[in-house]
């Protein structure tokens, strides 16, 4: 198989590094250089650890009521770092446990909408024609409602509970992912390497899963991270409206809504859950922006 004539036309330029640099590794390198993104990642990690080790970190349980006047609505102190609420419960413990609910809801809801949205989006983008029209119109209908209103309507139909709030948030995010992946599939489908794959003699399924999918996934990761932030806010909003987590559960939005009555007497009952929401959402947003810069260099500048 050796060709003598190829000796003199050997590779002209050698790349500087000898090791293979996968696109993922390269993205990670550029992500690491982005300070804000790293800060965001640390914030997210912090809350994830908080959620995992909540029973070891929180000094009290979520519903240890102490109804004596000396325990109710206490200002932050060395004993109760974040103070106590109107039932004499330790706000710090409740905020720590609340991270479990918020992250859980955010993550599951986004996973749900990614799975459903991607499936619909890929089908719409790859097969086109009337299938595309039907699915795209479905997305349009979902997007025509203000998202929080649609979520309220869904929860109103299913009945208020944390699980139903999660389903509602998943549903309202479906069209975002669906449209995103559909447009990606449409553009990737026109790439020359897809033609090449076809010319080599690959089946549709192989082209779809080995060539179209891996090249469409990056914006989903970015959008997914940002969507977790939105989902957490939406869960808090539903909780605030009494349509999410039920009574003793320390959902951050619910805590805000409970604290409203004591705004002037005990602002700490409002401040700390609010701060937790802000920090988590900020963390996810910073991380998401960093991921976008790293994974999708065209979006830069």
């Amino acid at each position: 198989m050796e060709l003598s004539t190829n000796k003199e036309i050997q590779v002209p330029i050698e790349p500087a590094e000898d090791k293979a640099v996968s696109p993922w590794l390269e993205a990670w390198r550029s992500f690491r250089k982005n300070k804000l993104a790293v800060i965001g990642t640390f914030i997210v990690l912090f809350f994830v650890l908080l959620a995992i080790f909540a029973p070891y970190i929180a000094p009290e349980g979520i519903n240890e009521q102490k109804l004596t006047a000396s325990d109710r609505l206490q200002a932050p102190s060395s004993e109760h770092w974040f103070g106590t609420d109107d039932f004499g419960r330790d706000v710090f413990s409740r905020v720590v446990y609340g991270s479990r609910i918020s992250l859980w809801v955010g993550f599951l809801a986004v996973m749900g909408s990614i799975v459903v949205g991607c499936l619909l989006g890929i089908i719409a983008g790859y097969y086109g024609k009337w299938v595309d029209s039907v699915i795209s119109r479905f997305f349009d209908i979902l997007l025509a409602f203000p998202s929080i209103l649609l979520a309220i309507a869904i929860v109103a139909v299913l009945g208020p509970s944390l699980r139903n709030a999660l389903i509602a948030i998943a549903v309202i995010n479906i069209p975002n992912f669906g449209r995103l992946i559909r447009s990606r599939v449409l553009s990737v489908k026109q790439e020359e390497y897809i033609f090449a794959a076809k010319a080599v003699g690959m089946k549709n399924s192989r082209i779809l899963f080995h060539h179209v999918m891996p090249n469409s996934i990056a914006p989903i990761i970015v959008q997914g991270t940002l969507a977790i932030a939105t989902a957490i806010i939406e869960a808090a909003a539903l909780g605030f409206l009494g349509l999410g987590a039920e009574a003793p559960n320390p959902e951050w939005g619910k805590m805000l809504s409970d604290a409203r009555a004591f705004l002037t007497q005990a602002p700490w009952t409002l401040f700390f859950p609010g701060l937790a929401i802000v920090l988590t959402v900020l963390g996810f947003n910073l991380m998401g922006d960093g991921l976008r810069d790293a994974l999708d260099p065209r979006m830069k500048n």
Partner: peptide, 12 residues
């Protein structure tokens, strides 16, 4: 064999 060697190879 395709025209554009930058577009015809799957980057991933």
């Amino acid at each position: 064999v395709f025209q554009d060697p930058f577009a015809s190879l799957n980057p991933r």
